[in-house]
Design a protein around this nucleic acid. Structure first.
Ligand SMILES: Nc1ncnc2c1ncn2[C@@H]1O[C@H](COP(=O)(O)OP(=O)(O)OP(=O)(O)O)[C@@H](O)[C@H]1O
Length: 727
DNA sequence: GCTTAATAGGCGCCT
DNA sequence: CCTATTAAGC
């Protein structure tokens, strides 16, 4: 195969076939390309069967792209190659090996919270402030990522709180199991158990996986590490690529030690470093390198480019979030929407941007936030399908037993569950033994049996038709479509459209797969994010997403919005290492850009419906001045008056140090860097004026200026870009 | 059991 | 600001 698309170290990584290999390198250095070429070369040059190669990516989209690119490199369709995310590949193995019958339901965060809510109710902890379903879910996931089972947790109980939590955790696991369901963490854990506890299966998969390749290795967690070890244990041909500076998922259990200590875990490992960046301009790289070099916990690396210097990045200081959105929109209008991304730290920030883009008639697509498959109407239809595949699924049953309304309210459902518990069966199974129950009212009994007959009818139809017609049949016969049609709700029309779109998606799935089944469709869908539907940078539309979602992508033009202290870095990131992770996130953001980037700060922003003000992000001070142009459009007084309030003290000591280290501003030419009363200055917006008062020190220096039109403004010297025109 | 109105509470990132 | 949940009324 033609390896001329690779530089020397890349080629070395690709041609190192045997043993453990680590590629640890900075952004845009061609790590993903190494994996792609290596897989292609293994198949094409070395005759390795695609069935013997497993490649793990971070998103489904990355997996699909990789598979496409491999086929293009080989110029042949490839069958049997295992490319996917850890979660999707694990789900697939578990289904194939019929773990939990193979028809398990994958519970997303929403389902998970419902189970936990039920548990809290059972344990009378619902109104305990210490336990909210979301918190509990997060804590449970944290434990599971570290392979701490309820039994193991029991051993480390230290107080009453732990004890209560332990019983929640235990009961959650029990309920989930009763429903034949798995949460996201279970997919990895169960797959790991499967290959560690079952000798036959271990041999099978260790033998099968002749080559294992992992992208974005810096964001793998403990369980994923164990999986990697197990799967590569026989052939030991393991290639991992990653960048410790781009590790941004520690809150989800990602453990940097996996990549930093790879050589310890695999002592015979070879390490390759890629140092040439093929993505960004020199200016972008300078800026990114300067920022990331402030982190202490990292492996230093070199990153250079042969590319041109490119334009300076721009840092805009704006009055509020609306102005920010307008400024971004204005830039996009002149340049066009092609290959442009707008990043933000939190999903809630997208709305203002969206509104402005819509007003300006600029096409855009939002990635993240509410996933398509998380919409209510989609989850409703999915619940019917899940229940038919897995009748033990109590979350789905509870969701649709009275949707549309069938006269089975909370009370009736509760008494069904009680009856079921007495028989030690699930509530769905109980529906087929109604005659044994004495407690139901005549009305309830009829309602139950009508619902039960409906399910039987739907189930019977499943064998009769193809998948698409079946899903259509379910949507109709369940009465759900009718319910939407008759709904008075404003969004009812949109919901109906979404259901049709969902049915189209079933069609696409059927076309894409050799042996489509409802089971595999449901499991695939549970792991899809709407990242996966995003066109690769080609479309004539702007992409909006969080910085986290940007990992691994590239765009010509990058906008990073919301550069405010408390928002980015986010104020909650105060725990150990939190600031460094925020900085890595900033690094990831900047390095997505090929040509140019613009960063915006809004002095005030609407949050929770009220206006809040914030200091500029300390990260803005970490950018070398020769890489950037600062533009202040706050209009002087208003926003910076707010800065006088002591409310928002800098969050991090480290930040404060950085600030002091950074007082060089190009428009600020006086040797001692001080303005004096009576000086004549030029302000970019307000024009010429005379300094009447100076207050504050260093970065907090403020000048009160009387302008020629007699307006008196107080401005932050640091940002106002004052030019001294006479003393 | 169902509908409507009031209000609590949320926003950190995601498989 | 938005949505999701709860209380009150039918
Ligand atoms: N040897 C090469 N010659 C030319 N272009 C290359 C080479 N290697 C990679 N590229 C290009 O550089 C860009 C970045 O490559 P790639 O995505 O593989 O890097 P990466 O290290 O995985 O990046 P990141 O870690 O930032 O996601 C891509 O556009 C890719 O096509």
């Amino acid at each position: 195969m033609d390896l001329t698309g690779l530089n020397a170290p890349q080629r070395e990584a690709v041609t190192t076939l045997h043993g453990p290999l680590l590629v640890l390198s900075g952004a845009g250095s061609g790590k993903t390309r190494v994996i792609t070429y290596k897989v292609a070369s293994l198949i094409f040059d070395h005759g390795v069967s695609p069935y013997r190669i497993m490649a793990l990516t971070f998103t489904n989209k990355a997996a699909r792209e990789m598979a496409d690119r491999i086929e293009r490199l080989i110029r042949l369709p490839v069958r049997g190659l295992l490319v996917g995310t850890f979660h999707s590949i694990c789900a697939r193995l578990l289904r194939i090996e019929k773990v939990m019958g193979g028809n398990f339901t994958i519970y997303d965060t929403d389902d998970q919270k419902k189970i936990i809510k039920g548990v809290l109710d059972d344990l009378n902890l619902s109104d305990s402030r210490s336990f909210s379903p979301g918190d509990v879910a997060g804590r449970i996931s944290g434990l599971k990522n570290r392979l701490i089972t309820p039994e193991r947790f029991d051993l480390q109980i230290g107080n009453v709180f732990d004890e209560q939590f332990a019983s929640i955790y235990r009961r959650y696991e029990m309920k989930k199991r009763k429903s034949n369901g798995m949460d996201f963490d279970d997919l990895l854990i169960e797959a790991l158990e499967m290959i560690t506890k079952n000798d036959l299966l271990r041999d099978k998969y260790q033998e099968k996986v002749q080559y294992l390749l992992v992208d974005e290795y810096q964001d793998t967690n403990r369980v994923q590490y164990e999986l990697v070890r197990q799967l590569s244990n026989k052939h030991r041909n393991i290639t991992v690529v990653g960048d410790d500076d781009q590790s941004i998922y520690s809150w989800r259990g990602a453990d940097l030690r996996n990549i930093l200590e790879f050589e310890k875990a695999f002592p015979d490992a070879k390490t390759v470093r890629l140092e040439q960046n093929y993505r960004s301009t020199a200016t972008i790289l300078d800026a990114a390198n300067a920022v990331i070099s402030r982190n202490k916990a990292r492996k230093p690396k070199t990153l250079w480019t042969e590319g041109e210097r490119g334009d300076k990045l721009e840092v805009h200081y704006l009055y509020n979030d609306l102005e920010e959105a307008r400024e971004v929109t204005r830039r996009i209008r002149t340049r066009g929407p092609k290959s442009t991304v707008i990043f933000y730290r939190t999903n809630a920030q997208s709305r203002t941007l969206e509104d402005e883009l819509r007003n300006a008639g600029i096409p855009y697509v939002i990635v993240g936030g509410l996933r398509f498959y998380e919409r209510k109407e989609i989850k409703d239809v999915l619940a019917y399908l899940r229940l038919l595949v897995n009748p033990a699924d109590e979350v789905s049953l509870a969701r649709i037993i009275n949707l549309p309304k069938r006269g089975i309210g909370d009370k009736a459902y509760a008494s069904l569950c009680e009856f079921a518990a007495r028989l030690q069966i699930g509530p769905f199974e109980a529906l087929s033994r109604l005659e044994e129950a004495l407690e139901f009212t005549a009305r309830e009994r009829t309602a139950f049996s009508v619902f039960h007959n409906l399910c039987l009818a739907l189930s019977a139809q499943r064998q009769e038709t193809d998948l698409v017609s079946f899903v259509q049949f379910v949507a109709e016969q369940s009465g759900y479509l009718k319910y939407l049609e008759e709904s008075e709700e404003e969004q009812a029309g949109e919901r109906l459209d979404n259901v049709s779109e969902f049915i189209n998606a079933v069609g696409e799935y059927v076309e894409r797969n050799d042996s489509p089944t409802l089971e595999s469709f449901l499991q695939e869908v549970a792991l899809l994010t709407d990242m996966d539907a995003v066109k690769n940078d080609t479309g004539e539309q702007v992409t909006l997403m969080t910085l986290h979602a940007g990992k691994g992508l590239e765009f010509d033009y990058v906008f990073i919005t919301g550069m405010e202290d408390g928002l980015f870095p986010i104020s909650r990131a105060e725990e150990e290492g939190g600031l460094e992770e925020e900085r890595r996130l900033f690094y990831v953001g900047i390095t997505r850009a090929r040509k140019w980037a613009m960063l915006t700060h809004a002095a005030t922003r609407r949050r929770f419906g009220t206006t809040t003000s914030a200091f500029p992000s300390p990260f803005l001070d970490e950018l070398p001045e020769h890489c950037i142009r600062r533009i202040d459009r706050t209009g002087g007084s208003t926003s910076f008056a707010l800065r006088d309030k002591p409310a928002a003290a800098p969050l991090f000591n480290e930040v404060r140090e950085n600030r002091q280290a950074m007082p060089s501003y190009e428009h600020f030419s006086q040797e001692d860097g001080l303005l004096r009363n009576g000086m004549k200055v030029q302000h970019p917006i307000w024009g010429k004026g005379t300094v009447v008062m100076v207050s504050g020190l260093a970065d907090n220096m403020k000048a009160t200026i009387k302008f020629q039109n007699d307006a008196v403004k107080k401005v932050m010297v640091k940002y106002a870009k004052l030019e001294i025109v006479g003393g």
